[in-house]
């Protein structure tokens, strides 16, 4: 078992109160698994991704545990997490285009970053990995401003995986790109795993059709909780959760990009996470809702590797 997340709860502090962005999330990611993490914006998928690396100033760990390769990750203690960051768990952030210090040459920045983690830069290995994502070695002598957006993102991919992390979080890495670059980037992510540079990966995205191309499994989030997790083709061909079904059926066809917006096909909006209702969070919009949905459905395994949080699916 590479990653085990148990009942993880993370809240956001806002002037209007605590937003329960993650409200009891439980799942596992196996060694070598690429898990797609899908959901609408505001579903908590990005919060889940960042929680595993670094809680930002307004995020608060409320409960639950994370275990990576049998070792508990101290997600609530940022200082203690430093030991695991980069080496055990790493991230390709959403803001890759601006993730590099604008006033440092890339090679120098990498060297300084590695030195601050007590690692020695291995120039030959660095150049080999740049070549893997199609970058010439001379990018190391350039400033970020001299690179295109796509090149910067590939630099970040290389930097983030330099220490061969056990788990890589790729957070919406394709959302700023055009369709052909998206495919290229997805291919590179796959390459990172196949080359053994990362053990397993969580790819946070709103684009199921894209993640389907490289993911082994897909987890769907709704309103701070997981709705369903299953092998990728099962999610696409035989989803069990009513929300996943609507999500999949709203995709015109696999391979066509779905814009980030509320689903038109499903009436209503997700509940506010400031004070979410008891029970299943989807029940107000769910065509199958019945009495029992007032009770929270467990995230239960209905088939090997297939878990669903719905009374109807059990």
């Amino acid at each position: 078992m590479s990653l085990t997340v148990t009942d993880l709860r993370v809240h956001y502090r806002t002037p209007r109160g605590e937003v329960r962005a993650l409200d009891g999330v439980t799942f596992t990611v196996a060694d070598g698994e690429i898990m797609g993490l899908a959901g609408e914006s505001g579903s908590g998928k990005s919060t889940l991704g960042t929680s595993l690396v670094r809680l930002d100033g307004r995020m608060r760990h409320v409960g639950g545990t994370v275990e990576l390769d049998g070792v508990p990750l101290p997600v609530a203690d940022s200082a203690a997490m430093d030991r695991f960051r980069f080496r055990a768990v790493s991230v390709i952030p959403q803001y890759s285009m601006s993730a590099l210090n604008p006033t440092r040459k890339i090679g120098k920045m990498v060297a300084e970053l590695l030195a601050s983690r007590g690692e020695r830069p291995d120039r030959a290995e660095l150049e080999r990995r740049l070549a893997l994502v199609g970058l010439p070695p001379d990018v190391l002598g350039r400033y970020p401003i001299e690179l295109s957006g796509g090149m910067k993102q590939r630099v970040v991919m290389v930097v983030s995986t330099l220490l061969n992390p056990s788990l890589l979080i790729a957070d919406e890495v394709t959302s700023a790109l055009d369709v052909s670059s998206q495919k290229a980037v997805a291919g590179m992510l796959l390459g990172l795993r196949d080359e053994g540079l990362v053990t397993s990966m969580i790819m946070v995205t709103h684009d199921i059709s894209l993640v389907y191309q490289i993911a082994d499994t897909i987890a769907v989030m709704y309103a701070g909780r997981l709705a369903e997790k299953a092998p990728a083709d099962v999610i696409v061909t035989a989803p069990r959760h009513p929300y996943t079904r609507l999500l999949i059926s709203s995709l015109p066809e696999v391979g066509v990009r779905q814009a980030e917006r509320r689903l038109d096909g499903i009436p209503g909006t997700p509940p506010s996470l400031l004070d979410p209702p008891e029970g299943c969070r989807f029940r107000d919009r769910c065509p199958l809702a019945f009495d029992r949905c007032a009770e929270r459905p467990p995230f239960a395994e209905v088939a090997p590797g297939h878990s669903v949080a719905c009374w109807k699916a059990v």
């Binding site: 030991r83 695991f84 960051r85 952030p93 803001y95 604008p102 970053l113 983030s160």
Partner: peptide
Amino acid sequence: DYVRYLRSLGAS
């Protein structure tokens, strides 16, 4: 952003 990135990589 570059500081956030460095922090998530555990830079000193």
